[in-house]
């Protein structure tokens, strides 16, 4: 129960619907914070706009609820101004992969020292259930009444290709893994990214014969395949499944704010430039 110190209990209960998975993700985040012993007076949690982004309202630390899609850009300014602070971003799949996609790939490319947790419910929850870039093909949403025609992103592969130095995926069914991955992400110096599949029974489930949140959790369990299992499976067996696990981890790339501090130190050694 030590993790309760990370919550603004005076603002509970939260605003999420009954059965929503966002509370499970937030619970995993505070347990991970507890596990790595984060200093809540030296941590800033930044979010965008969406149901998931409201998570910052309940966190008892410095918190910034920004504009839709821009959390990582705000977080970049904070990290560069105060590299000594721990900077965490919590946001939805629409926020991070659609309107904020540009900031996502560039934060990853720079290897900014930010831990980013994506609450992936495959839908725009806040605006009542339109499709997102993470909505799987064929599923119904408020704006895909005949079934979704587009393919979804593999967000973990995207951020890894863009340069992220810690990348993992889990689901709200796999709570222990989620806590562990977020904890490792929090301990990582560069850009760390954890995607967590979470259920929106209200808008995703109801339209796709999974109105009961337990059905959605079972769906995650059935769809999830670990990296090790996937290695032993045929491509046709993998169709429609979701890979979970830790995909990438490297300490070899310098974190950006550290590189900039090194530059400042190098220049101060040169004097003010007048004597060049």
């Amino acid at each position: 129960m030590e993790e309760l110190r990370f919550l603004r209990r005076e603002h509970l209960p939260h605003l999420w619907c009954a059965g929503c998975g966002h509370g499970i993700v937030l619970g995993a985040v505070v347990r991970a914070m507890d596990r790595v012993g984060i200093d809540q007076d030296r941590t800033v949690v930044v979010s965008g706009i969406g149901c998931s982004s409201r998570a910052v309202g309940y966190l008892n630390m410095d918190t910034l609820h920004t504009t839709h899609g821009r959390a990582l850009a705000f977080a970049t300014g904070i990290k560069l101004a105060r590299p000594d602070l721990h900077v965490v971003v919590l946001a939805g799949d629409g926020d991070l992969a659609a309107i904020g996609g540009n900031h996502l790939i560039h934060a990853a490319r720079r290897n900014m020292g930010i831990t980013c947790v994506c609450f992936n419910n495959g839908i725009y929850g806040m605006t009542s259930g339109q499709y997102s870039p993470l909505t799987p093909a064929g599923f119904r949403t408020a704006t895909a009444p005949y079934g979704h025609l587009e393919r979804d992103f593999d967000l973990c592969r995207l951020v890894q290709a863009a340069g992220a130095t810690y990348v993992a995926r889990s689901t709200t069914y796999h709570v222990h893994q989620t806590i562990e991955y977020v904890a490792r992400a929090l301990s990582h110096e560069g850009f760390s990214f954890v995607e967590v599949l979470t259920q929106c029974p209200t808008y995703f489930g109801r339209r796709n014969r999974m109105a009961d949140p337990v059905r959605m959790l079972e769906w995650f369990r059935q769809r999830a395949v670990t990296v090790a299992q996937a290695g032993r499976m045929k491509p046709e067996e993998l169709r429609g499944r979701v890979l979970i696990g830790e995909f990438h981890r490297t300490e070899e790339v310098p974190e950006y704010s550290r590189s900039y501090r090194d530059l400042i130190a190098r220049l101060s050694g040169e004097g003010d430039g007048d004597g060049r």
Binding site: V44, V46, L64, T66, T67, R70, A73, F74, A75, T76, G77, I78, L80, A81, R82, L85, N102, H103, H106, Y260, L263, I264, L267, S268, D272, G273
Partner: peptide
Amino acid sequence: LPRVGGVFIQMEDEIGSMAAVIGASLAGV
């Protein structure tokens, strides 16, 4: 800026630039 201990960053667009400026200001700079 780096010569006076400050930070310059060229962001990916103007939306991100404005966001980063606000973030840095909230951090006291």
